[in-house]
Design a protein around this nucleic acid. Structure first.
Lengths: 136, 136
DNA sequence: ATGTAAATCGTAATCATTATTAATTAGAAA
DNA sequence: TTTCTAATTAATAATGATTACGATTTACAT
């Protein structure tokens, strides 16, 4: 996902182009890792000292609902990152130091599939946590 | 995990036997599903109206650290359940209605293993969410 | 029965997140 | 370009889960 594509989606849904929205998106494009709302606000407030959590959370929720960002919960906090370019379903190794991810091309659900008859499967989560080579 | 085994562990580590601790453990033994701190407190306060969150959370943390309970994060809240009897590593289907689980005997890490050289793998999470046959 | 460390109570503090209301702004239309 | 209107934001308060703390109570070893 890149800036142009993100704005294509937003414009198509009628969202207005604001400098703050743009800068949030730029941050994610330029910093390809998981960030918290606080991480974002800290950086944003250098340019927009009056920026509030409301704006951050509202836009994060918008971006996630449109598939521009993806979200996960790490040690009790919500973390966000730009949605991967790859269109095929996959999972992530997540570095708990720097927040960078590595794509894991396999999905365990392929092997589970029919092993849960009579169960309604709505969702699943498979994540690997540790340290990336750079942080190790 | 049953009451006797839980108390064996607690006693061995020098923890005292209190009626509240015992009732929390009994709740988990008799109600084999994921519960929140609030769920627990609501039930406990019928017998101990003055019971506080401090006591609930303190004991939950103790039980988790000793491997008596297991913990996961569901829709932004911490949930706890009695640790499974089965000693082999496995994962869970979790019913988002009733909180009951079904053990999934396979682990996706078996197939990943050496696919992440140079990465330090500390932990992983694989959970399937949906509705169990009873709730569907 | 007594002493002491552990456990609990009562309450306040903290932290992430959400809600509210008024003011501002982007973009369409005149 | 100016005007209009709904979308967006700021400022702040509220909420909900979790943690912290001083005072009191309790388990249990002696």
């Amino acid at each position: 996902m890149n800036l142009v594509k993100a704005w294509d989606i937003l414009k198509e849904k009628g969202y207005k182009e604001t400098s703050k929205r743009n800068q949030i998106l730029e941050l994610f494009v330029n910093d390809d890792r998981y960030l918290t709302a606080r991480d974002l606000l800290d950086v944003m407030q250098k340019d927009y000292p009056s920026m509030s959590y409301d704006t951050v959370y509202r836009n994060l929720a918008t971006f996630v609902s449109l598939g521009i960002l993806e979200e996960t919960e790490l040690s009790g906090e919500r973390h966000f990152r730009m949605h991967c370019e790859s269109d095929s379903h996959h999972h992530h190794f997540i570095c708990m130091d720097c927040g960078k991810i590595k794509e894991i091309p396999v999905c365990p659900m392929d092997m589970i599939g029919a092993a849960l008859p009579a169960y309604e499967i709505d969702n699943h989560k498979f994540e690997i946590y540790g340290k990336c080579p750079a942080c190790k």
